[in-house]
């Protein structure tokens, strides 16, 4: 009894000992920056005067929320995230379903699909800026060849955000495909056969079997993609700088400018904290929903 207790304690000590390095690393690379940012967000910390001499409380938060440009960025980002995640999911799911039934040349399809995903977003932005050049780009050239009017891809306030959405879909849809495909190929085969004999048509199998069984994978995929989409910055920086006007001024780019152009790290940290709050809420909600499924 006594001995087993000491052994247990020794085991626990050993466990702590073994996990200490990774815990310390986690603390250093994740928690420390988060706390630093939160600490900064309640101080008047700028790159001109990088010190924590002036405690400002909620001032940075208030001025961020009162800034109509920041509120516009938040709303626009919500729209952008919803649009890319929805379209990438639909497109990704369709492609994943098609690929799942493919027997031959699977590695080749995988390779082609992964290409855009492996590209640096800066490169993606540059390539598409070139393709979408209104008078010298290949896209408008092809459009005029088949008799369409050239489109003002990035210069029109109505079009620009959709152009960014389309480029993001091109770049990121493979991520959805790969994750959903992994989920699909891990699905048991038998329930489908049972359903076929039970009288289910292909679309019924999809809605009654595939969709509910895939739900946990779908939610995790959507969640990861949403979090990444909120952070979209490179494409904006390369393709539009938030313009024309403020038509593509996503929140991550706006935070970047506050920190590195306005040099106001304190307010930028407050903006990041507000964003973090939204992401956390979303994560908790989706995580709970996923738990309720299983």
């Amino acid at each position: 009894m006594n001995q087993s207790k000491t052994m247990e304690a020794a085991d626990r000590r050993f466990g702590w000992f073994m996990s200490a390095p990774s815990l310390a690393l986690l603390l250093a690379v994740i928690l420390f920056p988060v706390f630093w940012a939160l600490f900064t967000s309640v101080h008047d910390y700028t790159l001109i005067a990088p010190n924590f001499d002036t405690f400002t409380g909620a001032e940075n938060y208030i001025s961020a929320i009162q800034d109509p440009a920041f509120r516009h960025s938040l709303g626009l980002t919500a729209f952008f995230v919803a649009a890319v995640v929805l379209f990438e999911f639909l497109l990704g799911f369709i492609v994943a379903l098609m690929l799942n039934s493919v027997e031959r040349f699977k590695p080749i399809y995988y390779g082609i699909l992964l290409c855009p995903l492996l590209m640096n977003p800066v490169i993606v932005g540059l390539i598409w800026r070139m393709f979408l050049h209104p008078s010298l780009g290949i896209v408008n050239y092809l459009l005029t060849v088949v008799g369409f009017e050239p489109v003002n891809w990035l210069g029109s306030t109505q079009m620009a955000i959709w152009t960014i959405i389309m480029v993001d879909i091109w770049h990121q849809v493979s991520f959805m495909i790969v994750l959903l495909l992994a989920g699909l190929s891990a699905m048991p085969k038998e329930p489908y056969e049972a359903a076929r004999v039970d009288g289910a048509r292909v679309y019924q199998s999809f809605f009654y079997i595939t969709l509910p069984l895939m739900m946990p994978v779908i939610i995790v995929t959507l969640l990861i993609r949403m979090i990444f989409a909120v952070k979209t910055y490179d494409l904006i920086y390369i393709m539009t700088r938030g313009g024309p006007g403020v038509a593509t001024d996503l929140v991550s780019y706006s935070i970047y400018r506050t920190a590195f152009v306005s040099l106001n790290v304190g307010e930028a940290s407050a903006m990041s904290a507000i964003l973090l709050g939204f992401i956390l809420l979303l994560t908790v909600y989706l995580y709970r929903y996923m738990r309720s499924l299983t």
Binding site: E190, P191, A194
Partner: peptide, 30 residues
């Protein structure tokens, strides 16, 4: 679906996300 036969699989192939009652009802609902 149109052969009007039923099959019992070696590994049962139950629908994992449905209750027993729903498993039973599935073919009838369709």
């Amino acid at each position: 679906a149109d052969r009007d036969i039923a099959i019992v699989f070696q590994n049962y192939a139950l629908y994992p996300h449905m209750t027993v009652a729903k498993n039973l009802a599935f073919g009838l609902k369709l």
